[in-house]
Design a protein around this nucleic acid. Structure first.
Length: 561
RNA sequence: UGACCUAUGGUGUAAUGGUAACACAGCAGAUUCUGGAUCUGUCGUUCAAGGUUCGAGUCCUUGUAGGUCAACCA
């Protein structure tokens, strides 16, 4: 009964609509489940991708199937190996293994052959119109398009022209290959969509082998088909692409993969579009893709998020087809839930106030045993030196405290975490009247939760020994934007007008000595402050910690902060 | 003013024609050497109007609202 509460296993919650579709198929005897996660290597993965990754790999795992990692690298002008590497690292870090690592570019030869096949069937043609002409002749959502003057070229001419496009005889933009469908189709995507464009650009994998590249719509379904993907899961905006996805597969008569759409993840107080995230990086608004304020996987990792907390989050947000905006608080809840069970506790004073314990012998000190993690006995104990001079946090002292303030104030008594009861006797000020030191007395009988006369105090505050404390940097992160939905811009503004000027606050802090050996990535709970993770910038003698998330703070609520 | 998708507490997600529930957030309390954690209680929900049915969140019709689509991006 008192066991740690487990995250609801996927098996014990109701099925989402995709699982119902799969179980329906299984009921009809189709037992194979093969999914894929298909990022374009043109940017870093973010928390929205994490939802897709957990979904695709999770479904495969749940139904004993496979999930491929496939790079949708059909546009060489935007793509780079830097992104390929980061994507692989992030998927692995999230805890998933792909059945195979594939690239749409691996299929360029097959795709080309199929394109010639469609030309031969009279289902595709080479169009000489300019980009502008193609755009205007496509019509609008309410006006049907009109056919290109090149729409009825002979199969022989189309084949010849397409081969010469491939051979590099034409400059970029001179010609395209189009599917011949229906220029008056109510779905704009079906109005003779472009299959190939000329791009004399080196590809990060195929080099200069190709100067024509397939478009997403032509490449994606066929790639799924080649890999014999059973469930091609994508986000809602691809819904209108499905008829085209099916059209190519149908015309080619190849393995019938099917596309299903779900609603992408949105989070409050952040943006999720790659374009905007790229802009923040390029303009130096953040320090890079892995800036802890970014909603990227690498940003969250650097901030101290755990793979398990992100998986739990993906599980909790569910999968459906309606647009949604998830409360950032849910993500924070998930990481607190995880870290509470696993993070070692430490004492760190953010805003130091010196305390001299006048009845503690000068020159004396003792080792105090501190519990590393009350949620995990196996985490053991550590020792912290206690002496006559210590630091406490300024927030833990008030000269004139309001009601319900349990912390230190003149004449009041609190417990120093893991050690003694402490009473404040006198306040020392500097010339300007600022409080610079507290003179206190301790109850020598009060160690280990006791007191000399059985009295109890309500407040417990943390501390560090003045002599041994080490100094370090704390990077306190707040939401990147101050507006709940930064994409929802007012007249004449852009999303950047809603950047939170306090998204990063850097402070110096005094830390207990055991933190000196913290290595980048190590996670701690600084008691009563929050969860922190040693930053890659951190090194012995130059400690840097990122605040992953603060602790729930009911005093802040009461005091109305 | 075309096609398609969607509409359930503050935010998400369930309820598969038969008592509208779960999580987060909120509120109140218990407990606690972290104002943490834990535990208990509590607030609050079916877009609208018709229809089918003994019975509708669910099916049908019509509205309304939101979203997606007019890159040689994915």
């Amino acid at each position: 009964m008192s066991e740690t509460k487990e995250i609801t296993p996927a098996a014990e919650r109701p099925l989402n609509f995709l699982e119902e579709i799969i179980e329906g198929a299984i009921a009809r005897g189709e037992t194979r489940v093969h999914t894929r996660f298909p990022p374009e290597p043109n940017g870093y993965l973010h928390i929205g991708h994490a939802k897709s990754i957990c979904l695709n790999f999770g479904l495969a795992r749940r139904y004993g199937g496979l999930c491929n990692l496939r790079f949708d690298d059909t546009n060489p002008v935007k793509e780079d190996v830097e992104y390929v590497d980061s994507i692989k690292e992030d998927v692995r870090w999230l805890g998933f293994q792909w059945a195979g690592e594939y690239y749409a570019s691996d299929y360029f030869d097959q795709l080309y052959t199929w394109a010639e096949e469609l030309i031969a069937k009279g289902k595709a043609y080479v169009d000489d119109q300019t980009q502008e002409e193609i755009r205007t002749s496509r019509g609008t959502v309410t006006v049907p398009g009109t056919g290109s003057p090149w729409r009825n070229r002979s199969v022989e001419e189309n084949l010849d022209l397409f081969r010469r496009m491939k051979a590099g005889e034409f400059p970029d933009g001179a010609k395209v290959l189009r599917a011949k469908i229906d220029m008056a189709h109510p779905n704009m995507l079906m109005r003779d969509p472009i299959m190939y464009r000329i791009l004399h650009t080196e590809h990060h994998r195929t080099g200069d082998k190709w100067c024509i590249y397939p478009m997403y719509d032509y490449a994606h379904g066929e790639s799924d088909s080649i890999e014999r993907i059973t469930h091609s899961i994508c986000t809602l905006e691809f819904d209108v692409h499905r008829p085209l996805y099916d059209w190519f597969i149908e015309e080619l008569g190849i393995f019938p993969s099917h596309q299903y759409e779900f609603a992408r993840l949105n989070l409050t107080y952040t943006v999720m579009s790659k374009r905007k995230l790229l802009q923040l990086v390029q303009e130096g608004v953040v320090r890079g893709w892995d800036d802890p304020r970014m909603p990227t996987i690498c940003g969250l990792r650097r901030k101290g998020y755990t793979p398990g907390s992100i998986r739990a989050f993906a599980e909790k947000v569910g999968v459906a087809k309606r647009d949604n905006v998830i409360d950032l608080g849910l993500l924070e809840f998930c990481v607190r839930e995880d870290l509470n069970r696993t993070a070692s506790r430490r004492m760190v004073v953010v805003n130091p106030l010196k305390v001299t314990i006048t009845n503690y012998p000068e020159g004396q000190s003792e080792e105090i045993e501190c519990v590393n993690n009350p949620e995990d006995e196996s985490a053991g104990m550590r020792k912290v030196a206690f002496a006559r001079e210590i630091y406490i946090d300024r927030d833990d002292f008030m000269e004139d405290p309001p009601k319900k303030y349990y912390r230190l104030s003149p004449g009041a008594e609190v417990r120093l975490r893991y050690s003694y009861l402490l009473r404040c006797d006198q306040v020392v000020r500097d010339a300007s009247g600022e409080v610079v030191e507290l003179l206190c007395t301790y109850d020598p009988q009060s160690k280990g939760g006791q007191s000399s006369d059985g009295r109890k105090v309500k407040g417990v505050i943390h501390w560090v020994p003045a002599a041994e404390a080490i100094e370090g940097e704390l990077r306190l992160y707040n939401s990147l934007f101050s507006r709940e939905n930064p994409d929802d811009v007012e007249e004449g503004k852009t999303f950047k007008d809603y950047l939170n000027p306090e998204s990063l606050v850097t402070v110096r802090a005094f830390m207990e000595p055991s933190l000196a050996t913290a290595a980048p990535g190590d996670k701690f709970q600084f008691e009563r402050v929050g969860y922190f993770c040693a930053d890659p910038d951190s090194a012995p003698g130059k400690l840097v910690f990122n605040r992953t998330v603060g602790l729930k703070d009911s005093w802040a609520k009461i005091s109305g902060k």
